[in-house]
């Protein structure tokens, strides 16, 4: 940092190739993003698969962690969708754990935040909405589209309401993906900006006097980002539950 190199807050989101790979002419190189996806997978597997391997009646630390995660997601899911929502439990659990792990791993200095990539959050959002539509149609057939027709509303208003309902439904994946992406991106930019500011002020002669101020901010924002990491994973999960509930019970 003493070289006076500019702080580039965007640098942390760059995809760097580690091993070049091609599949049918498509670039599927092993990158830093792949590394952190694999680390997230490894961490979750360590907690849930290895942690529960002992099947102890009195759980140890890892097993407690896995059971807490299990009950947390299960309670969230059944709280929103009721008992029949448990058929989606593996999906919702994997989703929560993956997003949460990716968010938290992104807090490690020098790491890469998988969920700060719009393509990843959009893929998750489309997966959720795709599941909702597929399950809704499979379970209720054309009744599923009753979701767009609020009951007990006069026809003239329906002409206005149905397009609004359709638009609001279609905007769900957009808002779902952008919320997570935006939060992760902005948080890390702010962190980097305050951190960079501290370093640059230290190297800017007399300005070094005020360098503790952005440092304090960086500390405060770090704490906030840990909260956001959990909160956004939770928000993503609970919205997934709400949308799945629509697939199970389409009536308004």
């Amino acid at each position: 940092m003493a070289s006076g190199k500019a702080i580039e807050p965007m640098q942390q989101f760059e995809i760097k190739k580690i091993v070049e790979l091609q599949l049918f002419g498509t670039d599927i190189s092993f990158t830093n993003a792949s590394v952190w996806m694999l680390i997230a997978l490894a961490v979750i597997s360590l907690i849930t698969v290895y942690g529960s391997a002992q099947r102890a009646m009195v759980p140890g630390r890892l097993q407690s962690l896995s059971e807490m995660s299990y009950e947390f997601v299960a309670n969230t899911l059944t709280g929103v969708t009721g008992k029949e929502g448990m058929q989606f439990f593996p999906f919702v659990f994997s989703l929560f754990m993956f997003v949460f792990a990716a968010n938290l791993l992104g807090m490690i200095p020098g790491s890469f935040t998988v969920t700060s990539q719009i393509v990843v959050t959009a893929a998750f959002a489309l997966l959720v909405i795709g599941t909702v539509v597929a399950v809704g149609v499979a379970k209720h057939g054309s009744h599923f589209f009753g979701l767009f027709v609020p009951s007990g509303v006069p026809v003239p208003i329906l002409i206005l309401m149905v397009p609004i309902e359709i638009i609001s439904f279609l905007s769900r994946p957009v808002s779902l993906s952008l919320r997570l992406f935006g939060n992760m991106l902005a948080g890390h930019i702010v962190l980097k900006a305050f951190g960079g500011l501290t370093v640059m002020l230290l190297g800017a002669g007399a300005w070094a006097v005020i360098s503790p101020l952005p440092l304090l901010m960086a500390v405060a924002v770090t704490a906030l980002e840990f909260l956001v990491a959990f909160l956004q994973a939770y928000v993503f999960t609970i919205l997934t539950c709400v949308y799945l509930n629509d697939a199970l019970h389409p009536g308004h």
Binding site: L23, A40, T48, R55, F93, F98, V119
Partner: peptide, 26 residues
């Protein structure tokens, strides 16, 4: 494309592990 490929790979593995091994056990 690369990110999606690795995401499908890792999330698919995660889903398989969770639904087959971890969650039934817990």
């Amino acid at each position: 494309a690369g990110q999606l490929f690795w995401l499908v790979l890792t999330f698919g593995t995660l889903y398989a592990l969770m639904s087959r091994v971890a969650l039934p056990r817990i």
